[in-house]
Design a protein around this nucleic acid. Structure first.
Length: 274
DNA sequence: CGGGCCACCTGGCGGC
DNA sequence: TGCCGCCAGGTGGCCC
């Protein structure tokens, strides 16, 4: 499910819902996600107040007044629901809060993360320490990107999905961004010219901004905590569009589908020249 | 060290 | 209807 726009959507809903709530009890039904959830986590967070919720890359961080922070990643299939008394399969974690509110973490494939560390150590944690630049960081300039891609012989599509280079972009948005920037996904990352890097950065910001406004993208089953789908599904130009005419060059070319590093890539071979 | 490939896990879909 | 293989929004580890 979740790339930056989906995580941002979930984070915003969480922030609205939980700031200043007190955690009464955390129930873990399944300890084995991508990490093993520490057995003492419920005890550490019982009776602590949630002070702040923010996003870094595809992680959601919740700072509490016990000087500890929850670190949450949604993996491929993670979802958050609020106040739902009708429990479902794969509701692995339930956080019971003050005001009779509750937060449910559901993740059928269990590729997600639910962990904690000291608030002051969050950015040194194994989860966050190696992460690259945020897409909306003002330090993300064409020259910065060129430097980051220097000596990278991998295809540009793989490079922009590499969380150690730039964070938050996954398979769907990588395809959409490269289409917008008119750059072939096959291009070697180190071959980008400064003007292309600039176009790429503009496309990243534009696509992600629009996707956040739309509440993300629902391909199969992504739901926002309020139960909505992500409406950016209606704005996709290449992802899942193989065999259809290109939305820019029309009848002249069709969107094609290839495999790169084990992931499906969609692009227009005419608009996105190598 | 960089890059390619597999593994982790469940569920849905199309084909036979 | 049922089984099988394939595919899926992500990432870490292993191997060369």
């Amino acid at each position: 499910m979740p790339e930056l726009p989906e995580v941002e959507t979930v984070k915003n809903a969480l922030a609205c819902f939980v700031i200043n709530l007190e955690i009464k009890e955390i129930v873990i039904n399944q300890h084995c996600l991508r990490n093993i959830i520490p057995a003492n986590l419920p005890q550490i967070f019982a009776n602590s107040k949630i002070l702040r919720v923010y996003r870094r890359a595809k992680f959601i961080i919740m700072d509490c007044d016990n000087e500890k922070s929850l670190i949450i990643h949604l993996g491929m299939s993670g979802k958050i629901r609020f106040n739902d008394k009708n429990f479902q399969k794969h509701d692995h974690i339930v956080i019971y809060c003050s005001q009779n509110k509750s937060i449910i973490y559901n993740d059928s494939r269990r590729f997600g993360v639910f962990d904690f560390c000291r608030t002051e150590d969050v950015h040194k944690s194994n989860y966050l320490k190696g992460l690259g630049i945020e897409p909306f960081d003002v330090k993300l300039t064409p020259q910065f990107l060129i430097n980051a891609l220097k000596n990278k012989k991998i295809p540009i599509k793989q490079a922009i999905m590499d969380q150690k280079i730039i964070t938050g972009i996954g398979n769907i948005y990588a395809c959409e961004i490269l289409f917008k920037a008119k750059i072939s996904p096959l291009r070697s990352a180190d071959s980008l010219k400064i003007k292309e890097a600039q176009n790429l950065i503009e496309a990243i910001k534009e696509i992600l901004t629009l996707a956040i406004k739309a509440g993300g993208t629902t391909i199969k089953d992504f739901k926002t905590p309020s139960g909505d789908i992500g409406y950016f599904i209606n704005n996709l130009k290449v992802y899942g569009k193989d065999g259809l005419c290109c939305s820019v060059c029309g009848e002249k070319s069709k969107i094609i589908k290839i495999k790169q590093a084990g992931r499906t890539t969609f692009y227009c071979p005419l608009c996105q020249k190598s």
